[in-house]
Computed example of a mutant assay.
Amino acid sequence: MDRHGRTYAAEAGIRMRDTPQPLYQLLVLSSLLSARIRASVAVAAARELFAAGMRAPRSMASATWQQRVDALGEGGYRRYDERTATQLGTAAELLKGEYRGDLRRMREASDGDRAALREALQDMPGIGPAGSAIFLREVQGVWEEFAPFLDDKALQGAGRLGLPDDTAKLARLVGTEEIAGFAAGLVRAALDQHVVDDVREASG
């Protein structure tokens, strides 16, 4: 937690709160992170989109496709930039139409049912099983009814660190406010052997 427990949302400059704008920004970040691309590139691309003013469904939808492509490119997100630019625009329009641009309405519709929320998230273009898992990992600090949520990637990281590969046991190691950062740290351990080595060295 001390060395690698920063959420990906925080890395992208998102101050997580239960308000429409940061929740939408997390959805965008989740879409970018779910592609087969380095997490650091996805985070950089999200920051560029937000810096270019695309921080809400309305501004994302009103931006041109080329503006979205350009922002993604500035963040180094070039392999999937054209497809992703299209998906971001389509998802923003859908979110505006279905939920009036507010993901809290999706939360209310799911009524605390994690599977229902994941299904609704996956109706958004660019959000598949991986993207919905990322969103839940990061949002659980503010949408506490869905906590604890540790997906297969987080549990894989726990195993590499010699921690239990059981969600309930892992959740008891941290509080609800820390679970999102803990999950992010576990994912980093799954993705990067250097994180595992660093934690073992620090704890040894």
Rank of each mutant, 00 (worst) to 15 (best):
Q140E: 13
E48F: 03
R105P: 11
F135L: 07
G53L: 09
E74P: 07
K96T: 14
T86G: 11
V43N: 02
A120Y: 03
T64P: 04
A63W: 01
M124Q: 11
A45N: 01
A51W: 09
T84H: 04
S62R: 06
G89V: 02
L95V: 09
G128E: 01
D111P: 12
L33Y: 01
D102R: 03
W143G: 00
G162D: 13
A92N: 07
A158M: 02
D70E: 13
R78I: 15
G101R: 06
S110N: 04
E145C: 06
W65T: 13
A158P: 01
R78N: 15
T90F: 14
V142S: 04
A44N: 10
T64M: 08
S30W: 03
A45Y: 00
R137W: 06
G162E: 09
E145Y: 07
I127D: 11
G141N: 01
D165P: 10
A46G: 08
G97S: 08
R137Y: 06
Q87C: 13
S110V: 01
R68P: 11
T90E: 15
V43A: 10
V41L: 02
L103S: 10
L161Q: 03
D81W: 05
P57S: 09
E119M: 15
A44T: 10
G126I: 00
A45H: 00
R36D: 15
P125T: 04
G162M: 07
L32I: 05
E119H: 13
R38P: 15
L103C: 11
R105M: 15
D151H: 05
P164H: 04
E144Y: 07
L155N: 02
